[in-house]
Design a protein around this nucleic acid. Structure first.
Lengths: 241, 241
DNA sequence: CGACTAGTTGAGATAGATCAAGATACGTGG
DNA sequence: CCACGTATCTTGATCTATCTCAACTAGTCG
């Protein structure tokens, strides 16, 4: 696999945009210096595979920019996306060499990486790092469980609406807002990838988007751009808990 | 809420059956003494609610015996189980006061509890405890994601088979074995609870169990006891990844 | 012995899948 | 700049796994 390793001096931690949200958040300055010395960056283009399920993965990383998808699949080709990594999210598992999911770059993406063995060492020496990682993992677990409710019990229309709500919330959070009315959402994935997230077929995704449009819940600008006239109405469609 | 607090001298850590698997596993003797001094036990009978989603939860706990279920539900009553806590599993979230899921005792159950605030203190002082909790949380995340694949993509029959495989594996692991042929599994829940785990209706669960029985994949002894003549055949039915 | 709970089984309805045909967008090379 | 090929998306017609509604059985408990 091509490595795309940039010299680590290229980007300093103290100007890093994801510092407040990533694993390194909360680490004291002296520890940050250590992290800075060990990190290296890798970039991927949209569609590139970062790791295959079952392959060895000798690094862990934070998403600096872009979106990655975690997926599992059955031998017969059925695929389910099990996670969406956005800016600041953590990738990889300390203490495990083999990746349990396939990781694909959904958009162009940059990672801030550490060798796994080194990172495991750091975890034992830097409680702030370990605590932040625990916190992030617990958050991911909550997200995964919310998604289980969606996959197990929601209708196709509710699933689509839920995804749009999630993306809208993320997009607003990025600019430090709570979602108000009239939001524009950029779908960072194809219909097929959406279907694989929601446990649907791409045809059903297409039809339900059309139905939400027909019911004036959303406006479609081209294939990838969605405008939401009333966020409250969208939330109502999503059957929030 | 009734507390059912047993005096903590009643059960010593060094004779505790779940020691090798629980959060406390790996903690050095001097730290175990501290844990022992702070723990208290609570018992629940089958069907009792441990916490309601949205309620405050001021303790964390390990399951000493019995089975608990984590569930979320929608206003209209649709329910999805998002986790199954078996012997040794950890319940509660350090750093969060409000329970995001309802926790119900599926069988009679005993918990080994710590006040949440105290436990959070311990985490900062006992790296072994924090590391073990991180490891367990990462494992749970993997389980949750496997379950997402089940909920999003598997057929009803595959879901039932997958659940039986999971229970068989847990049951064998308890006695330090890998599952061989001829396993007896005790279903620790009603048909409705199974349905809520698998994202099905109770009727479908009943029918698929009948179908697996008709196809000689399982034998039913009464309502709750399942015997598996060939574990390999069951795994084949489960569409494992 | 009722009355209640848990489970089974049947018949029919339906959401979403599957199969199939076009439409739209996009990049590439002539 | 256009023609072509490919990938993505939409829409339609049909099929089917699962849900829904309903009746019935088997334990269990007071």
């Amino acid at each position: 696999m091509a490595l795309n390793v940039a010299p680590h001096s290229q980007q300093a931690c103290d100007t890093c945009p994801i510092r407040p949200h990533a694993v390194c958040a909360g680490s004291p300055p002296d520890q940050l210096v250590v992290l800075e010395g060990l990190k290296f960056r890798r970039s991927f283009t949209a569609g590139q595979v970062v790791v295959w399920a079952g392959e060895e993965m000798d690094f862990v990383a934070s998403v600096v920019s872009g979106v990655a998808e975690l997926g599992r699949e059955l031998e017969d080709g059925r695929r389910q996306m099990v996670g969406l990594l956005l800016t600041g999210d953590f990738l990889g598992r300390p203490g495990r060499a083999i990746a349990p999911y396939t990781v694909v770059a959904a958009t162009d993406m940059t990672l801030c990486c550490f060798r796994r063995a080194q990172f495991e060492q750091l975890l034992t020496k830097m409680p702030a790092l370990a605590n932040r990682l625990l916190e992030m993992t617990l958050d991911e677990l909550d997200v995964a469980r919310d998604w289980m409710l969606l996959l197990g019990r929601k209708s196709a229309r509710e699933r689509i609406a839920s995804l749009l709500v999630l993306l809208a919330r993320r997009e607003s959070a990025m600019i430090g807002q709570t979602p108000t009315d009239r939001i524009a959402i950029e779908l960072p994935m194809t219909r097929e990838a959406i279907a694989d997230h929601l446990g649907l077929t791409l045809e059903t995704v297409s039809r339900q988007l059309a139905a939400l449009k027909a019911d004036k819940v959303i406006v479609l600008d081209g294939k990838r751009r969605v405008t939401v006239p009333s966020f409250a109405a969208l939330v109502a469609e999503s059957a929030a808990a």
